[in-house]
Nucleic acid binder design. Structure first.
Lengths: 245, 245
DNA sequence: CCCGCCCGAACTGTATACAGTTTGATCTTG
DNA sequence: CAAGATCAAACTGTATACAGTTCGGGCGGG
């Protein structure tokens, strides 16, 4: 189940860099909202989970901190980031700017084949929801947006959006009101339709509407201060866990 | 001379994190083109220069690698990045997108005081040029753009632009044709004029023209493959160097 | 009962040790 | 003389050791 290695995120986990693999695993756990904002991430425990020394865990955490999805407090260790309201709004504003550009280019560059790939992502998300795997659905929703930006053929903007999507995951975890925002696949299908029509202006409009919808579902008054999940929710994503065998 | 600690980059070097300080020093050396693309960066030597162990140097290099201004090859170490032609074009395209947004907002948000700060930056650049300190002038030119984006009050876009400006420095070092691109302060003064007039459309137009000018000065046919500078060009930026005393 | 002090457990910051890899130079051989 | 094998130096990958810091709990005094 968890092992369906989509090509999406596989690009980064360049085998050989164990620290990257650990960072990827934690990143995925955050993207799937198994690790919630505020959760403390002690180096020792992570090392035990992934069967690595603190050296590698530390490198992974520092990389995640650079992405702003983990915060590092001196002498106090790492924790999953809790974006402020201002930061949340800035993230979505940046998304509007960047995704307007990427979706427009995607409309020009898309082929039936690549669009089928996007559609498959949406289908997969629907399946995940049917299986009550909400975390996976959330992550796939993000990968849909990244898929579009990949079509745009602008690696720099794609990398930026990657950051923004990850951070959006935290924002939704903190301020998400209903489950509607990340789960309804109607918006995504409508977006694909505009891309199939190669109608760039319509695609941009649809994307802006979609992002506004997500943002509208946020409730900045009542942040979800859930009690913090334990760290042993990790491990499943890859076969990295210390196999005692 | 080098000690004029402008508020510009000081925000990052949060004292206490020695690795950040080292990264900052290397980053500055690259921004000032004292370290040219392709230069090898051995951990031991850097450690000796900054009086730190490989642990800290390594952390710094990994951070710089995330910013794409250093490349890390497994078992082969770090080197100053040499952006490809495609990457160079992508960087400038991203700059056009982001700086159009930031300069427009800056035009709305600028006050006479903040604009004086920008002007001071331009003046400082001119002074640096007069003192034949080309590296410093180049870095200040980048900080001018960052100053505008700071006015925009969008921290996310500002952070992105920070990346792009650093990478632009490498692009110019590799493909820069004349010295014109980064040094003529006329464009920057014209930009400030549009900001003073609070004329957002004119500011955007001026910025686009300016970026196009810089890009036009690049010669992608003849990359400057200078023979690689030695690493002991480092040290001056801060008092980090191992004071043998 | 409450407040402040002290101490120990848990954790991070950094250096260092050791193992594995790359690379280029030297030596050998056809 | 050229081409390939061999080996040593240089460097990176990772673990571990130790020092310093934070934080919460127990204890004594008011």
């Amino acid at each position: 189940m968890t092992g369906s290695d989509r090509g999406a995120a596989a690009g980064l986990s360049r085998m050989g860099d164990r620290a990257d693999a650990i960072g990827e695993a934690i990143h995925r756990a955050i993207s799937e909202q198994r690790l919630l904002p505020g959760t403390k991430l002690p180096e020792d425990q992570l090392g035990a989970i992934y069967g690595a020394s603190r050296t590698l865990v530390r490198a992974a955490l520092q990389a995640l901190a650079r992405d702003k999805i983990v915060v590092l407090a001196r002498n106090k260790g790492a924790a999953v980031a809790s974006p402020s309201v201002a930061e949340a709004q800035a993230v979505f504003e940046a998304r509007r700017l960047i995704e307007a550009a990427t979706v427009a280019r995607a409309a020009a560059a898309a082929t039936p084949t690549t669009l089928d790939g996007l559609e498959a992502l949406v289908d997969e998300g629907r399946t995940a929801l049917a299986h009550h795997d909400r975390g996976r659905a959330i992550r796939l929703s993000g990968e849909f947006h990244l898929g579009i930006s990949r079509l745009a053929g602008q690696p720099v903007l794609h990398a930026f959006l990657r950051d923004l999507v990850s951070r959006s995951s935290l924002v939704i975890a903190l301020y998400g009101h209903t489950v509607h925002s990340e789960c309804g696949d109607g918006d995504h299908r409508a977006l694909i339709a505009t891309l199939r029509a190669r109608d760039a202006p319509a695609a941009v409009a649809e994307m802006m509407r979609h992002l506004a919808d997500i943002e509208r579902d946020l409730d900045f008054k009542r942040p979800n201060h859930r009690p913090l999940a334990l760290a042993d929710v990790l491990g499943p994503p890859s076969s990295l866990a210390v196999t005692a065998a």
